[in-house]
Design a protein around this nucleic acid. Structure first.
Length: 803
RNA sequence: GGGCGCAUAGCUCAGCGGGAGAGCGCUCGCUUCACACGCGAGAGGUCCCUGGUUCGAUCCCAGGUGCGCCCACCA
């Protein structure tokens, strides 16, 4: 095949992607012997498309996976999709609305059929996009959190927890999203600052002896007040505790109670208690045995025991009426503007409506304990470590998990009720009630939180609860790579589920990838329209360049996106391509390291040193430094020095054989980052039978420090020559390299004076330091020694410059 | 309200106790027979501010300013 001077990734990349996959290179055999290396991809939403976060996350994982595959590990990168309960249901509901109907109108069964139909037509496109970026996932093993086997795993998990006694049903306050029409967990609530009005309302004492003023941001909830609480030590209200007040509008008589959870210095220090619609009030209400009244329904509209003219209003409308009532009755003391944080549904952006409802919960303390221990003992490590400490804090203060969602799309709870209200929990539909034997069973309509199934991902994808060969071979896995946003939602729960069900941690390292922000530091989002489509980058620069660029940008910090690093990657691929063209142009049949000259011994040593550094980078999940190292190895060491030095001798068979050997090692190191261009070049190397993807990772080689020093001499001489035009005499082989690398410029001399000045300044600096007695006395001996050597080197340079 | 992190060249970022770095951009010179997605040379920086520790601070400590993130039941 002809090698053009300009490397064009388009076509080449797709061809290798097909070749690798069709050859089964991504598909490990569970029966193979030897150590395994396993990563389960964070399952993208089945409705999703590839965005920058996926592209970065996948690039990182693919580097780890490809390197371990080359090192001989039986490597599995497990792919699949998440059913993404709320998100998917919302998409289809929106579609129904556009058709003038609704899920309630068409019914549960028809709705679920619609979801499946929609998924078959439009869902599941992201695996194709993963292929395009070169992700070496085992696509033959694609799993879905709603496939039959996975559903069995979810049911088994639930029943297991139920039998442990950790799952219970309770009427408690939940985060209700009136838009999604479901409860959501604390972790799905986003706190946003909101401008509100703080309304001060007077509640008259029932005995007519005066009134007490409370402050509220939600006047509509006055309708559900069941008490007013003050701090027990608050002198202002000491005499009022135990007396009765009359709630405005509804004119209900309620007690004044004392509770330490009331903040004395907020508002008036008197807190109206609305257990039905406020989490703190709920707790206080339970402790004081107060009733839990509800005036806001699941639809966010006023309902319940309220004046008829208020029923059916929105909360805001009702609030207006209540304030109006207060004003008319002289009970409105004042209203002032007030900015504070309010919980919003992360998915819909709707303001959370705390309300009491009957939900299924899971106690988490016993599940958390082994996970806490795994983190404390560092059997599981986070990278960077700060996230592990945050995860620990969360686990130590863990709260019950609201498992049930009032949705249709998802895993329906394996809970059945008989007419007498007995509960039967079973993996599949029971024939009769476990308590009374009734055969009239009705299944709980709710579904499980999406993250309940995600918790099982590292082993449910391998066939659990069946004892499959895959489960035996590939569990536990090694690493999980994901974003910061789902450490509690996903990472912590995988740890807990893995320890509980499998008895072991699902992976030993958790790598948290950075967020890719837009050019001015904002999160990329659909609504802002500031997102960059990774597929556009791949089309423009190639998958290799995109991978390189994203890895270069990755860091422990969030990073602002620029195309610079991706263009750098494209140049690296092109440079490598042209270096290979230079070597391949002359033909040749041998690939064998037979170094005879200094530069040959040096480049082999240099590549090997980089191999060791690269391994250290990757072992620490430092991808940015890893790719930077590869860039400079390729450009500076391999091309600028080695190739330039051997160019005059490229006709010699031994020189060619060694050059091919050096290129082969370079390609191997680059392959995990730039899989396509390296595989393409590899296929042009002499006597290639296997593919680079399966080639063994380079073994360590002995180094000779003297070679590096001799090469450095040539490099210094060349630098001085280029800058000043002064030729420094260098010994033996260094002299030949100098000759090969320096091409005298036709314009003649550089600036000797400028170079002399530069060296002069360095000498002065070193002399000043060494003249400082305190420095010589207090600094570490090796630091002083290094400074002396520098001084000597600079003096030699100055001498060479004639000055 | 609590916790964490970041401020270094025009831009995006490395470095984190002893000579201020990379890539891009910019200037100048090169159609040198692998590559103009290239080669060579160069300009450009009170390393946010104020104190402190140290022989020595971009790097450590304290405070300040600005930005960001996470957690959170002060209505």
């Amino acid at each position: 095949m002809e090698m053009e001077p300009l490397y064009k990734p388009q076509g080449v990349e797709e061809r290798w992607q097909r070749t690798w996959e069709e050859a089964g290179d991504f598909h490990p055999d569970p029966a193979s012997a030897g150590p395994t290396y396993v990563i389960a991809v964070p399952p993208p939403n089945v409705t999703g498309v590839l965005h920058m976060g996926h592209a970065l996350n996948a690039s990182m994982q693919d580097v780890l996976v490809r390197r371990h595959r080359m090192r001989g590990f039986n490597t599995l990168w497990q792919p699949g999709y998440d059913h993404a309960g709320i998100a998917t249901q919302a998409v289809v509901e929106k579609q129904l609305r556009a058709e003038g109907t609704s899920r309630l109108e068409i019914g549960r069964e028809a709705f679920l059929e619609r979801v499946w139909a929609w998924l078959h037509e439009y869902g599941g496109v992201i695996m194709g996009q993963f292929r395009r970026i070169g992700a070496s996932l085992d696509y033959e093993r694609e799993r879905f959190t709603m496939d039959d086997g996975y559903v069995r795993a979810v049911m088994r998990f639930f029943v297991h927890l139920y039998e442990r006694g950790w799952i219970y049903r309770d009427n408690r306050i939940v985060n209700w999203c009136s838009d999604c029409r479901t409860s959501i967990s604390d972790l799905e609530v986003e706190h946003l600052d909101v401008d509100d009005a703080l309304t001060y309302a007077r509640y008259p004492l029932a005995d007519g002896s005066g009134s007490l003023t409370i402050a509220t941001v939600r006047p509509a909830t006055i309708l559900a007040d069941v008490a007013v609480a003050v701090h027990p030590d608050d002198d202002r209200y000491a005499g009022l505790v135990g007396k009765d007040l009359v709630v405005p509008v509804v004119e209900r008589t309620v007690p004044v109670i004392a509770d330490e959870r009331v903040e004395r210095d907020f508002g008036t220090g008197a807190l109206k208690i609305t257990p039905g619609h406020d989490p703190l009030d709920f707790e206080i209400g339970r402790d004081h045995g107060l009733p839990e009244l509800t005036v806001l329904g699941f639809d966010g509209l006023i309902e319940g025991d309220v004046p008829a003219e208020l029923a059916g209003l929105t909360e805001d409308e009702a609030a207006e009426r209540v304030v109006e009532w207060l004003r008319e009755h002289g009970q409105l003391e004042k209203r002032e503007s007030y900015r504070h944080a309010v919980g919003h549904c992360e998915r819909s952006g709707t303001r959370i409506q705390p309300l009491v409802s009957l939900q299924w919960w899971c106690r988490m303390d016993e599940l958390a304990r082994p996970a806490i221990e795994a983190l404390e003992s560092e059997r599981v490590r986070f990278h960077p470590p700060v996230h592990g400490r945050v995860a620990l804090d969360w686990l130590r203060a863990i709260r019950p998990w609201n498992l049930s969602r009032q949705l249709w799309w998802g895993h329906q709870l394996p809970i059945w009720y008989c007419p007498d209200g007995h509960v039967t929990c079973a993996e599949s539909e029971p024939v009769a009630c476990g308590e009374c034997g009734s055969e009239q069973l009705e299944r709980d309509p709710d579904v499980l939180d999406t993250w309940f199934s995600s918790a099982l991902w590292p082993f449910a994808t391998l066939g659990w609860p069946e004892e499959t060969p895959e489960l035996r071979a590939f569990y536990p896995g090694d690493v999980n790579v994901t974003g910061r946003g789902i450490i509690f939602l996903w990472e912590c729960r995988m740890l807990m589920a893995g320890l509980e069900l499998m008895g072991t941690i699902p992976f030993h390292d958790v790598v948290i990838n950075s967020n890719v922000l837009d050019g001015v530091g904002r999160t990329m989002s659909k609504s802002l329209g500031n997102g960059v489509d990774p597929l556009d980058l791949i089309h423009a620069h190639g998958a290799d360049a995109t991978r390189y660029g994203l890895l270069k940008m990755s860091s422990t910090q969030d990073v602002r996106f620029t195309t610079g690093p991706i263009e750098e990657g494209r140049k690296l691929a092109n440079k490598l391509w042209n270096a290979s063209r230079l070597l391949l142009a002359g033909g040749g049949v041998e690939v064998e390291a037979r170094p005879s000259s200094l530069e040959e011994r040096w480049i082999l040593a240099r590549i090997d040193a980089t191999r060791a550094e690269l391994e250290a980078d990757l072992d620490g999940y430092d991808f940015a430094h890893a790719v930077d190292r590869l860039y400079h190895l390729t450009f500076d060491d391999f091309c600028d020095w080695y190739l330039e030095a051997i160019k005059p001798r490229l006709g010699e068979p031994d020189v060619r054989a060694t050059a091919f050997a050096a290129l082969e090692r370079l390609l191997k190191l680059l392959h995990p980052v730039l899989p396509h261009v390296t595989e393409e070049i590899w296929s042009h190397l002499p006597a290639r039978e296997s593919r680079l993807i399966l080639a063994p990772w380079p073994e360590p080689m002995p180094h000779d420090a003297a070679d590096a020093e001799a090469l450095a001499t040539a490099q210094t001489a060349a630098r001085i020559y280029r800058r000043s035009g002064v030729r420094i005499k260098v010994p033996g082989e260094s002299e030949r390299i100098f000759e090969a690398v320096v091409r005298p410029s036709p314009d003649g001399q550089g600036d000797v004076e400028a170079e002399r000045g530069r060296v002069h300044r360095e000498i002065e600096r070193a002399e000043r330091m060494l003249a400082n007695e305190k420095f010589v006395a207090n600094a570490a001996p090796d630091v002083v020694e290094a400074e002396r050597r520098k001084l000597a080197d600079y003096r030699a340079e100055l001498d060479a410059l004639g000055g």
